[in-house]
Amino acid sequence: MGEFLQTMIGGLTLGAQYALMALGFSLAFGILRVINFAHGAFYVVGGYLAYWITNEVGLPYVLGVIVAVLGTAAIGYVFELFIIERRIDDHLATIVMTLGASLIGGAAMLSLFGAQAVQFEGGLTGTFRLGGVFVPHARVMIIVVAGLAIAAVYLLLYKTQVGNALRALTDDREMAVAMGMRPKVLFPMAFAIATGLAGLTGALVTPQFSLAPFVGEHVLMISFLAVILGGLGSLPGAVIASVLVGLVEAFVGTYVGGSWAPLILFTGILVLLVVRPSGLLGHRTIIDA
């Protein structure tokens, strides 16, 4: 029973981390219809920014997190405004350009910090006991931040005027522009929020996992899984799917064996695509009519 509970809590915290990873990715697709292959790179850049501020400059971890968020958001803003925006209607082109950005980001971190993983402690240490289960403080913080970020994105999209404008632009850009909405302001902003979330995730999660130029690949993969499983463009779908992925990984890892977990997940997703191609909560629109 203790093992089950430990696995359960482990799976849920993992799921919360995954949800945070997938959130920005899902947002970029939901609003801009851009599959951001640079999402993992932004995560890594966020991690390194926080690491640099904390370990090399010597400022508090909180400041490192803030710099990571602002820095990645600023890069995302500029990237959208000057590059993505020019080919926003061409899905393949945006994929290729974000791939390019991902290569550039990875290369930059590689030349600045080297290929080896760096020792990044983060701010919170220590654990506490919950009914016989040990939970690190940092993980609790991640769960709290993930919950707040999800709530904030939800409120932004569905309860504010900016959110309405963004969703209108997604539905029918031409019409929304005719009604006076300004994609040149709103889209870079939305993309900046998405990349800022990636940076935030990097700053918070890399102390838990590891920080090296190539770790973004894993984040990208988790994001893919979450959006395919949850349905492309569905924010609640991505969150639920992330938690599901975390739970499956934890339980299969405990009861079956480590390397089977991803295989079961990936194969499960391929099977899901046969049965229900639109994902768990997605719309039918992803299928060609």
Binding site: I35, F224, P262, L273, I286
Partner: peptide
């Protein structure tokens, strides 16, 4: 896979690459 629309197809081929390695 070919029932899927373009962007989705790209994502899923990426997943396929992982599956085969695993």
């Amino acid at each position: 896979l070919l029932r899927l629309r373009g962007t989705y197809f790209a994502l899923v081929t990426f997943v396929l690459a992982q599956v085969v390695v695993l």
